[in-house]
Amino acid sequence: MAAVTPVPVTLSKDKIPTKKNVRDIIGTFLTEEWPSVDPETLIVSYHASFANAHCPVERPRPATGTSTETLKVFIKFHHEGQGSLDVFKPLAPTKHGEALLCHEYGRTGLGAKVYGFFKTQDGTLGRIDEFLDARNMEPEDVENPIIRADVAKALAVFHVLKTPLETKAVESYYEAIIKGLRSYHKMDKLKALGKEGGVSIDKLVDYDYGRRLKNVVDKLESIGGKTGWCIHDIQFMNVMVKNNPKDGESKVTLIDFEFVMQNYRAFDIGGHFMQKMFKWFDEESRIANCRKYTEVEKRHFCDEYARQWNQLTGDSDTADQVFLESEYGYLLAITFDIHNMLCFMDEEDDKDPLNLLGLNKLFDEFVDQYARLNLEDL
């Protein structure tokens, strides 16, 4: 798995694979039945995104006998120039590193199995994963205590995962994002794009996140906030809820590890609480039509997280400690989203009013939480 396997495939200039391309890529790793599949019988659904492209691929069941290989897989294509924002490139994993991380997570039994990591003759890197019989998590799902507990335990497992990635100081992340946030501070172009989109974001753009984020980090350090491998992009689209989990099996699987770096565990925990309010790919509103995480639900989550963390590490952390950390992590996660959305605006001249309204909601959440935690006195 550690090696990149060359595949006898050359993608076209638009990088969209043909059915034969897909069959030949998969057949390099699943060698018993896939190589002889008629490409025209495959069901392929290709999707491009800002970060990567991917496609689920399904072959028909054999006419006779029992299939010895999976009928459906998930291919992820990593195209040059897409993916990590420039400010995070020195910290985020390479595409190969991300594939190795997915492989290690899959071995825990919580993630999708990785069949192989490939490189086409035109230089495109990609990965073939087990196809998960699952759906994207919806905000209402975490109101179910069983699903909520499984997300908490999955994050604890991930945070202490032994990975092949180089461990880089948490401080490096904050140096990078504070520098990035300062580059957008008071930027006239962003204000103009907001006005063109019909939604003023002047207050958000003029707000000094860098200074305040430093206060949050100092506070987390003072209370002994613990660190681990954080996902960062912890939006609900990156948590899959299994349709038919086996008895005793976790109901959720975490996906999309493009931004995995060392950080305070509070980032992912508080970020998970915050993301319940957003549906970033919804066509009608980026703001979810549901209630916030309640404090009772947050404390239940933190109790389940602490139990799993302690079991894996031998620590004796309390739910109260994890909850306190998460209150500051809520702010860390908001600044990550605000930074990335402002970067997208600047690079793509984005003025989608739904995105702008989502940005203002993030701003309001940051201001309210910052004041509630009395951080302005620091």
Results as ranks from 00 to 15, higher is better:
Met1Glu: 04
Val4Asn: 10
Ser12Gln: 03
Ser12Asn: 10
Thr18Pro: 03
Thr18Trp: 06
Lys19Gln: 00
Arg23Tyr: 05
Ile25Arg: 02
Ile25Glu: 06
Glu32Met: 03
Ser36Ala: 12
Pro39Ser: 02
Thr41His: 01
Leu42Asn: 02
His47Leu: 07
Ala48His: 14
Cys55Met: 14
Cys55Asn: 11
Arg59Phe: 02
Val73Glu: 04
Ile75Gly: 00
Lys76Met: 10
His79Ser: 10
Glu80Phe: 03
Gly81Pro: 07
Gln82Met: 09
Gln82Cys: 06
Leu85Asn: 14
Cys102Ala: 12
Gly106Pro: 12
Arg107Ser: 04
Gly109Gln: 07
Gly116Cys: 04
Phe117Lys: 03
Thr120Gly: 01
Thr120Pro: 03
Asp122Gly: 07
Gly123His: 04
Leu132Tyr: 00
Asp133Lys: 05
Arg135Phe: 03
Pro139Val: 04
Glu140Arg: 11
Asn144Ile: 07
Asp150Arg: 03
Asp150Ala: 09
Lys153Trp: 03
Lys162Ser: 14
Pro164Arg: 11
Leu165Glu: 01
Leu165Tyr: 10
Thr167Phe: 01
Lys168Leu: 13
Lys168Asn: 05
Ala176Tyr: 00
Lys186Cys: 12
Met187Gln: 14
Met187Thr: 15
Asp188Trp: 05
Lys189Tyr: 12
Lys191Arg: 12
Leu193Asn: 09
Gly198Glu: 02
Ile201Thr: 09
Arg211Ala: 14
Lys214Pro: 00
Asn215Arg: 12
Asn215Ser: 12
Val217Asn: 05
Leu220Lys: 06
Ile223Asp: 03
Gly225Pro: 13
Lys226Phe: 13
Trp229Gln: 04
Trp229Lys: 00
Met237Thr: 15
Val241Pro: 08
Asp256Met: 06
Phe257Arg: 01
Glu258Asp: 15
Asn263Ile: 05
Asn263Gln: 07
Phe273Asp: 05
Gln275Arg: 09
Lys279Pro: 07
Phe281Ile: 09
Arg286Gly: 08
Cys290Phe: 05
Val296His: 06
Lys298Trp: 04
Cys302Gln: 07
Tyr305Leu: 00
Ala306Lys: 01
Arg307Asp: 13
Gln311Tyr: 11
Thr313Lys: 06
Thr313Ser: 02
Leu324Arg: 13
Ala333Pro: 06
Thr335Asn: 11
Thr335Asp: 05
Met341Ser: 13
Cys343Gln: 15
Phe344Ala: 15
Phe344Asp: 15
Asp346Ser: 14
Asp346Ile: 01
Leu354His: 09
Leu356Asp: 01
Phe363Asp: 01
Phe366Met: 07
Gln369Lys: 15
Arg372Ile: 04
Asn374Cys: 02
Leu378Ala: 13
Leu378Arg: 11
